[in-house]
Deep mutational scan, measured.
Amino acid sequence: EVTIKANLIFANGSTQTAEFKGTFEKATSEAYAYADTLKKDNGEYTVDVADKGYTLNAKFAG
Rank of each mutant, 00 (worst) to 15 (best):
E1I: 14
E1T: 12
E1L: 13
E1C: 15
E1D: 11
V2C: 11
V2L: 06
V2N: 03
T3S: 08
T3Y: 05
T3W: 06
T3G: 03
T3N: 05
I4T: 01
I4G: 01
I4L: 05
K5T: 15
N7Y: 13
N7D: 02
N7H: 12
L8E: 01
L8A: 06
L8K: 00
I9F: 13
I9E: 08
I9D: 03
F10I: 03
F10Q: 02
A11C: 12
A11Y: 09
A11M: 08
A11V: 09
A11H: 09
N12A: 05
N12H: 06
G13P: 00
G13K: 06
S14M: 13
S14C: 15
T15N: 07
T15K: 11
Q16Y: 13
T17Y: 13
T17S: 11
T17P: 03
A18L: 15
A18H: 14
A18T: 10
F20Q: 00
F20R: 00
K21T: 13
K21W: 10
K21A: 07
G22E: 01
G22Y: 04
G22R: 00
T23P: 09
T23M: 06
F24M: 10
F24K: 07
F24C: 08
F24L: 09
F24N: 04
F24Y: 10
F24W: 10
K26V: 11
K26D: 12
K26Y: 10
A27D: 02
T28W: 15
T28K: 07
T28H: 06
T28F: 09
T28E: 05
S29V: 10
E30Y: 08
E30P: 01
E30M: 14
E30A: 14
A31F: 15
A31H: 00
A31E: 02
A31Y: 04
A31K: 01
Y32R: 07
Y32W: 08
Y32T: 04
Y32E: 03
A33T: 08
A33Q: 09
A33S: 08
Y34C: 06
Y34A: 02
Y34S: 01
A35F: 15
D36P: 00
D36A: 07
D36C: 07
D36S: 05
D36L: 05
T37V: 09
L38A: 09
L38D: 00
L38M: 12
K39T: 11
K39E: 05
K39R: 12
K40Q: 11
K40S: 10
D41K: 10
D41W: 12
N42F: 15
N42L: 09
G43L: 03
G43S: 02
G43Y: 02
G43K: 01
E44G: 08
E44P: 14
E44R: 07
E44W: 10
Y45D: 02
T46S: 10
T46C: 13
T46H: 10
V47C: 06
V47L: 09
D48C: 15
D48M: 12
V49M: 08
V49R: 06
V49N: 05
V49H: 07
A50R: 12
A50K: 11
D51W: 01
D51E: 07
K52F: 14
G53T: 01
G53W: 01
G53A: 03
G53K: 01
Y54Q: 06
Y54V: 05
Y54R: 06
T55I: 08
T55S: 06
L56T: 03
L56M: 07
L56K: 02
L56A: 03
N57V: 12
K59W: 15
K59N: 12
K59E: 09
K59G: 06
K59R: 12
K59H: 15
F60H: 02
F60M: 01
A61K: 13
A61V: 13
A61S: 14
G62N: 08
G62E: 07
G62V: 07
G62Q: 08
G62T: 07
